[in-house]
Design a protein around this nucleic acid. Sequence first.
DNA 1: TTTAGCACTTGAAGGTTTCGAGTGCTAATC
DNA 2: GATTAGCACTCGAAACCTTCAAGTGCTAAA
Lengths: 352, 352
Amino acid sequence: MSERKKQILKAIVDAHIECGGPVGSKSILQNRQLNCSSATIRNEMAELEEMGYLEQPHTSAGRVPSELGYRFYVDSLIEHYAMTTSEIAQINNLLRVKMGELDQILAAASNLASSLTNYTGIAIKPRLNSVSITKYETIFLEPEHYILVAVASTGAVKTKHIRPEEPVDPAVVAKLSAALNLYLSGLCAEEINLPIIMNLESHMGADSGMVSQVIKVVYDLLGELDQGEMKVSGINHLLQYPEYSDVGQFQELLGTLEKKEDILNLVSRNESRDDVSVLIGSESRVEVMSNSALVFKPIVKDGKTLGAIGVLGPRRMDYAKVLATLEGLSDNIENIIRAGKQSKNEGEKPDG
Amino acid sequence: MSERKKQILKAIVDAHIECGGPVGSKSILQNRQLNCSSATIRNEMAELEEMGYLEQPHTSAGRVPSELGYRFYVDSLIEHYAMTTSEIAQINNLLRVKMGELDQILAAASNLASSLTNYTGIAIKPRLNSVSITKYETIFLEPEHYILVAVASTGAVKTKHIRPEEPVDPAVVAKLSAALNLYLSGLCAEEINLPIIMNLESHMGADSGMVSQVIKVVYDLLGELDQGEMKVSGINHLLQYPEYSDVGQFQELLGTLEKKEDILNLVSRNESRDDVSVLIGSESRVEVMSNSALVFKPIVKDGKTLGAIGVLGPRRMDYAKVLATLEGLSDNIENIIRAGKQSKNEGEKPDG
DNA sequence: TTTAGCACTTGAAGGTTTCGAGTGCTAATC
DNA sequence: GATTAGCACTCGAAACCTTCAAGTGCTAAA
């Protein structure tokens, strides 16, 4: 492809991203300094259309980038977006305040992604195939009520209320947690088999009656940990773009976002790549997202994917800005969870 | 108001709830058996309009219930909706499976409310003014990493990762949890004052250096517990009603649902009533909800409001069905959290 | 190879017409 | 006095038409 074609394609995509409508041959003369006339551009555009990078809604309209056009733009033509100091500050501040649970950090990041880009932000904890619980703890409240706390291999912490069928006393509950740590820690759901459970029961001696209930809770916990989660923020932003003015289509998109399933599948399918993924239109293989684009980036620690943050918007998304924002956010999150400095350097000069 | 007026008003509201458009004098003759002609109905309708129960979009259109009309309908005319066995079964099944955390139960109930009524479901944990933490526990993971678990007076359990500035050993972490229980349990944020913190520090002796960090985390926890939470499900359902076809208005509504603030305020304002609340149109005092209705019911245990479930939809909501659904759900939830039977009667005959 | 010029296309915007559901009023009826 | 048939009138929704401008492809000249 000639250099001039690239320039023209880039100009068209840029203009389309900004205004949303089809782009005509004259209008791109104004912005870009191309030493040629609109007629030349028309010829080039006709060729670009033949090559599959552009589409024409109807004979007498301008051109619109095709999916392939966006793909080429994202792969080869995109310019690096330099975040403003205000944007950088927002990322640093908001995340510095948050501490603790990854869920909260991801949700906050999704919020921020949404408000910085004006698209919809998505926070994802992907489906995992074999999470284990590394540490158990019990908290006695009353003879008929105690709490089981489980720390997962991913760092997630989950708790469950348990109301035993027979009243228990604090010592028994403590013994239970010791036994759980002894026999179940480090095991994922498939690895908890009958012999292990029997060991556990014999360890509990006279109190083995409570084991079956606890095992059921542990299974539930492991199931919940495997299960993906997803939070969506800033859906309202989408409605400002005319591509979502079709109520029926938007309703379907909303439904997909609520179901979560399709998007979680999508992310699991692409999570092997540690890098940012850009799925344009039908590349997502989700029917209802054929007019949208989804950009997401996994959050990785020690080679393991702990989550992902993403942005969903119209196909004519400001990819440069979205990419920069997601990079910035994920770097920041990874710093937080790696160093775990927990906002203790508040008040210090960041560069001091 | 004469009996016949009531009948006519009820017929109009019923018809409007079903079809959404203005209701003419003829159309209500078909359904209801009223021994009179359309002309008589027109006269009555004119009077009902004068009384403020009906409105006329324009001269030659039928009538639409006014806010006052809905209010009268809900207060005096509504018929009890009898749930189908399938609906009852769904409520019983879905909630029976869920156990443990109230959050999860509420979220599931909101989902169910949405799918049963075809409106938007809302799960709320209201703002509270002085939650305390009744029990603390710590879990040692590594010298640079432990977890603080807090059980709130509401029964909620929260956890925070803590990465101490100086490495600690398991015994110190255990001592910390004992000290927290000794000095802080049962206190809300305002009650934790300097003398108490100093007691805590002196209790910790050589390890008092870690106290300030922990206190900060405890404050955060108490803050988070006070804060309301809200989950929304089934927004997509709303788009099937023509009253939400105005994109701009719907966008604002979406924004309000995301912000959560307005709706949480609304619920706190009305939570004094243990009973179900019906806010029609501007009764909510939220500008953007003037074309919507919000119905919600608090979840109460031992006289304390632990949460609420609600339904948001167009003003012409099927109030009878929504009320029945919310009653059914809240009864069920209150049973679960009171008895805490934790689905242990699976497999038994429910009436056995 | 590029460009000016021109005829042609087409959807969007705005205006007009038609249509029908529904009203209010009046006069006759129960 | 309450009810009802009849009728003129109203007004928005839908359908249709016209105009307009942006944009194209093609041709012939530079």
